[in-house]
Design a protein around this nucleic acid. Structure first.
Length: 1127
RNA sequence: AGAUCCGUAGCUCAGCCUGGUUAGAGCACUACACUGAUAAUGUAGGGGUCAGCAGUUCAAAUCUGCUCGGGUCUACCA
């Protein structure tokens, strides 16, 4: 007996998935999908490594679904797609997790716990949830190689990172410099931005703020200020720049004043409120109100009363910030420690930068390069040098007179602490150098461990000189295909434009150590690029410095490149001095950015030959990536570091296409967080609804890059609508194909010999294949999914299957029936393949169910076969168009029936369709039978112009006409609106029509208007677009009788079903007490018998044991039993 | 604070790039129909100042600017 298509009680996605998963594992389906394509063109994919020290969330499902579907699609397109998995294992979250677990802080490391033990803990914690991740990977159907992942803490991985760093070092792109970082003097350590973002670090505090006055140096550049000041009679001679600060302790370190180029500034004549001396001050015009009262403008300067509140002022000049650039001023608080020479630059000048605002202060920013990132940046730009007059404990250095040795904030909890900021302010007041001193409340960051205020402090750090190749990176970025485009041009593009050098240094314990050894004075250094090199250097050091040094490493090979071991290694410089390792670790983002190289590790032979790319195979075929995908939050993370390293190391892009997916929010649009308790557990979601439904929902609901409001209701809908429909269609097919034993053994019937409707669905299917392929090729899976969704629902299930149902269950196993089976089979199998990238389980299941019976494909998994290719020869747009007409016409008729309340079972005589052009009639003609049977009407009559029934409507074709007439459009439109029926026919007959618009002639062409039929006088019509349909709603006695017969058939079918008869059972029917219905039943007896499979239909006068039913509100008694032949 | 994305029906989204006059789907809701796919399906209906304002244009959901609201990233700064 032939194999049967599997039939099911109901759709159960999770159980299908379990079954398919088991099959994949058994058959090594993933491995096979790669090995089958051996020798084929590679499609290179990079897996962004997740960190397995936290639980995976639903947002991981979307990015992985995205990655998976692209890889599966490309595999089906014939490419070989290797997918090496990876784990990100270093970094602060892991350290923090370990500290929390052990109940320790950073200070305890090296005291309560050794670095060795600490790092061992980190190593253990790193893959804590690896099982969960692997489990999710499996369950969601993400095909990635988990057997041989790259792990960033592996020696071979770190070794490759070292090699990369050394390459940068050799190119002169690695340098040590200071950078301004958050620093906690109380804790004696720098803080990362992550630490600064701990809750509660920003606190509202009241600080002493001061507006200091910097005296302008009089010279040629500043002449315009002094001249303006002197013009005003009786004004003081001196000009001051006003600058505000909330940290007066930074004033001794001041080296510049920064203004905004386009900000309006004014020179104001007034008095110093403390010394009452006449002064001229410069500040932003927009901030005048903060210091001066409008009513005192142009007040009486001569009558100024120092004791009174009234401070007269007047504007002497107004100018843009640009005019102030390069002006010089006298140092505010000169001391031996802060002379211009000690600054190392050319300080005390006015600078321009765009960070200046007029929100607060004076619009002139006091700039102390050591204590602010902006200050440092602008200071560097202008070369004003740098002064760090506060030491690491937070106190002033020597050489600052009365302030030396004082803490700038109360870091030591001194009970008698006197605020040095107040003292500085008082000094300024006395020296006529302060305009306003007051307490100011603002939000300021505090160290999350000591609760003391942070200060921004220059710390040594190693940098990669990314700015050196900024232009090249921008250029390379333009060749990358970004999805969405805006992220690449906007967010990423801007980021590149504003790039700063990459600060690599991290003062941590668990991470990749910087492979640089230096002599104590920093005059000699070495950057190590491999383990072999390190060993050689160790041996050398042992020889030069003596055998005791590095005694742990006398053997070959270092067991662990992490701290503390590498820190114990002492190397020797060229001149024979000992060198120690720079204590920093590197930014974990370097780890992941270097994964294209480090995932393979170094090839020792290539290394020895000094090759440019000494990485193990298959690096050669795996760089750059064709495709990567991660969340948008990686734009400045992984996307950036990959790009930077690709450009820095090999002047190449690291990836050709990048898809950045948006966030997953909860159903109300809030970010998911543990705190809010609105996180969606991916495991239970998949378990309950299935991975495919989840994937389909995630992909089709919104473009991957839009943020997605995750709602379980949406998954349910997808389950019901898409999967339910597709499953039903399959189930329908299987049911009848099994009855008829269809196994696609017959030769395919040439498509042009199949019925019109088969040709149509196949044409639509090929169009679908074309569009879906285009969408996937363009990395638009949402479009692809929606197209498939629509086809399955609207075309296949709702039209093709519905209209063709009878073909499957009626009659013999004829050519027509075989055609129907072949057509539906092709549709189902093609859909399985089209959707396979998104719905890997269901597609494989569907494909398997079909293929196991027909054996049409030698390969048993849908993921091993090729993606469908559109057969253009089967696409018939005319056919698709007329089927659309049929659907529209049917819909219109049903809508008319609805309006007059005549049910579809009641046959009607005719519909009228006005046709304005012969082509339309030809089109409808071909689908006439479909329309008639669908709406249960006997005939279609076409009304043409000649009949004179049609009333036409004319409308301008704005698109065509607008281009030509432009601004006359309104007048033309009005003129057309006034057309009568005669005008319209004239235009139709002659193809053009002369108008007069604004007393100018205008020839209207026929293609510049749209003519539709509006009405058929005396009929009820309905229309959609150019199609208008009228329905004859007269129910003649004949039609009524037929309607009764149909109604009876419906009742008997119900009885059959209620009685539980088999589809093929034949029955006997008796009808009694039929009254007025009797005539109907007698007349249509043959029809009724055929429909309900009755061997006998008797209409009797009286029936005793029948069932009382109603047919069109008329009572009748009916008796049904199985025919003896069926029993 | 800056950059960027988003704002269309009660909800989820198309349409916007390339302007064209009645703004579409699905879900939900209401009514009806179908009943040999049946815990399925269909049809119809109500439901919109296309966030707001201004501009460009004969014509704006669509292009431009601004404002408001939401998300994200980067900052946190005198």
């Amino acid at each position: 007996m032939a194999a049967k298509y599997r039939e099911f009680q109901q759709l159960n996605l999770p159980s299908i998935e379990a079954e398919i998963l088991e099959k994949w594992n058994r058959e090594q389906a993933f491995e096979k999908s790669v090995s089958l394509r051996e020798g084929a063109a590679p499609f290179v994919f990079y897996e962004g490594p997740p960190s397995a020290n936290g639980m995976p969330g639903i947002h991981h499902v979307i990015s992985r679904a995205l990655k998976d579907l692209v890889c599966r699609y490309k595999t089906m397109q014939g490419f070989q797609v290797k997918r090496k998995g990876g784990w990100d294992t270093h970094g602060l979250p892991i350290e923090l997790g370990v500290e929390k677990e052990l109940g320790i802080t950073k200070e305890d490391i090296g005291k309560k716990i050794t670095v060795e033990e600490y790092n061992q803990k980190c190593r253990e914690a790193v893959l804590r949830f690896k099982d969960k991740w692997d489990n999710l990977t499996q369950k969601m159907g993400y095909w990635v190689d988990l057997n041989d992942p790259y792990i960033t803490f592996d020696n071979s991985y770190i070794e490759t990172l070292w090699w990369c760093l050394q390459r940068l070092y050799k190119k002169g792109l690695l340098y040590k410099s200071v950078s301004i970082q958050p620093y906690s003097p109380a804790a004696g350590t720098g803080l990362s931005s992550h630490e600064l973002n701990q809750p509660g670090t920003y606190k509202d505090v009241k600080d002493t703020s001061a507006v200091a006055m910097f005296k302008a140096v009089r010279n040629a550049e500043s002449a315009f200020l002094y001249n303006a000041a002197e013009k005003a009679e009786g004004a003081g001679a001196e000009v001051y720049f006003m600058a505000w600060t909330t940290t007066p302790w930074t004033l001794p370190s001041n080296l510049g004043l920064t203004v905004g180029a386009n900000i309006d500034y004014v020179l104001v004549r007034t008095f110093n409120p403390y010394t009452h001396l006449p002064v001229n001050v410069v500040l932003a015009k927009a901030l005048l109100h903060k210091y001066f009262k409008p009513e005192h403008e142009n007040g009486d300067f001569a009558a100024y009363d120092p004791a009174g509140k009234a401070l007269p002022w007047s504007i002497l000049a107004e100018f843009k910030g640009k005019a102030l650039e390069h002006l010089r001023y006298e140092q505010l608080l000169p001391y031996p420690a802060n002379t211009a020479e000690k600054s190392g630059g050319d300080p005390f000048r006015l600078l321009i930068d765009n960070f200046v605002t007029t929100e607060d202060g004076t619009g002139i920013v006091h700039t102390a390069p050591a204590f602010g990132a902006d200050d440092y940046k602008v200071g560097k730009k202008y070369g004003i040098g740098i002064l760090t007059l506060v030491d690491r404990e937070g106190k002033f250095v020597d050489g600052l007179g009365e302030f030396s040795g004082r803490y700038v904030k109360n870091y030591k909890d001194q009970p008698d602490y006197v605020d040095v900021n107040v003292d500085i302010s008082v000094k300024l007041k006395k020296e006529n150098r302060a305009f306003k001193v007051e307490k100011y409340e603002h939000s300021y960051p505090h160290c999350w461990r000591t609760d003391k205020p942070v200060l921004y402090y220059p710390l040594d750090a190693w940098f990669i000189k990314t700015t050196a190749i900024k232009d090249r990176m921008v250029e390379l970025n333009k060749t990358i295909n970004w999805k969405p485009k805006a992220t690449g041009e906007g967010r990423f593009g801007n980021w590149l434009e504003n790039m700063v050098d990459w600060n690599l240094s991290r003062s941590r314990f668990w991470g990749t150590p910087l492979p640089i050894w230096r002599t104590e004075d920093g005059s000699e250094e070495k950057c190590i690029g491999s383990i072999a090199e390190l060993n050689a250097e160790i041996r050398k050091a042992n020889e030069v410095l003596g055998g005791d040094i590095n005694h742990h490493y006398l053997h070959d090979g270092i067991l662990d490149l992490h701290k503390p071991y590498v820190d114990e290694v002492v190397l020797v410089s060229e001149s024979g001095k000992p060198m120690r390792r720079e204590p920093d670790l590197i930014d974990v983002w370097f780890d992941s950015g270097a994964m294209p190289y480090a995932q393979w590790g170094l090839d020792q032979e290539k290394l020895e030959r000094g090759e440019d790319r000494p990485f193990k195979a298959p690096f050669g075929q795996n760089f750059p990536a064709d495709f990567i995908a991660e969340g948008v939050d990686q734009t400045r993370g992984w996307f950036y570091t990959l790009h930077a390293l690709g450009a820095l190391l090999y002047d190449n892009v690291a990836y050709k296409t990048v898809v950045s997916n948006g966030l997953v929010l909860d159903r109300n649009g809030n970010k998911m967080s543990k705190r809010l308790g609105n996180v969606v557990d991916p495991f239970s979601t998949i378990e309950k609804f299935g991975a495919d439904a989840t994937r389909w929902y995630l992909i089709t609901n919104a473009s991957p890059w839009d943020s997605l409001k995750f709602d379980l209701e949406g998954i349910k809908e997808v389950q019901r609508k898409f999967f339910g429909t597709l499953y039903n269609t399959y189930q329908f097919f299987a049911l009848y194909a099994n009855v008829d034993g269809f196994a696609f053994r017959e030769a395919p019937i040439p498509v042009q010999e199949r019925p019109e409707i088969d040709q149509w669905i196949l044409s639509s299917l090929q169009s679908l294949v074309k569009e879906v392929t285009a969408a996937f090729d363009d990395y638009e899976p949402t479009t692809a999914g929606r197209l498939i969704d629509e086809f399955v629902d609207e075309q296949l299930s709702n039209w093709y299957v519905r209209l063709c149902r009878r073909r499957f269950w009626k009659g013999e196993y004829s050519t027509d029936k075989i055609s129907a089976y072949q057509t539906l089979y092709t549709c189902l199998e093609t859909i399985a393949r089209l959707a396979a990238p998104v719905t890997p389980f269901f597609s494989d299941w569907l494909f398997g169910n079909l293929n196991s019976v027909t054996g049409k494909h030698a390969l048993e998994s849908v993921h091993h076969v090729l993606y469908p290719k559109a057969d253009e020869s089967l696409i018939d747009k005319g056919l698709e168009e007329r089927m659309q007409l049929a659907q529209d016409a049917s819909s219109l008729v049903l809508s008319l029936r609805k309006k007059v309340n005549i049910k579809v079972r009641q046959p009607l005589q005719r519909i009228l369709i006005p046709v304005l052009d012969p082509a339309m009639k030809t089109q409808i003609d071909k689908v006439e039978d479909l329309i008639l049977s669908e709406v249960n009407v006997k005939e279609i009559q076409y009304l043409t112009d000649a009949d004179g029934f049609i009333k036409k409507k004319i409308r301008p074709n704005f698109q065509a006409l607008g281009k030509r007439v432009g601004s006359k459009m309104k007048a033309v439109s009005a003129a057309i609106g006034n057309f009568n029926q005669a005008d319209i026919s004239q235009l139709e007959k002659e193809g053009s029509y002369s108008l007069e618009i604004d007393s100018e002639p205008l020839i209207l062409q026929i293609h510049e208007v749209e003519i539709t039929s509006e009405d058929i006088p005396g009929w009820m019509v309905s229309s959609k677009g150019a199609l208008t349909v009228a329905l004859d709603v007269t129910v003649s006695p004949e039609l009524e009788q037929e309607g009764n017969a149909r109604e009876l058939v419906n009742r008997i079918q119900k009885i059959r079903k209620d009685n539980g008869y088999e589809l093929t059972d034949r029955i006997l029917v008796r009808l009694g007490q039929a009254g007025p219905l009797e005539a109907s039943f007698r007349q249509f007896a043959p029809y009724i018998k055929a429909e309900v499979l009755a061997d006998e239909l008797e209409v009797v006068d009286s029936l005793q044991d029948g069932m009382a039913i109603e047919v069109n509100d008329q009572p009748v008694t009916v008796w049904v039993d199985r025919s003896p032949q069926s029993q």
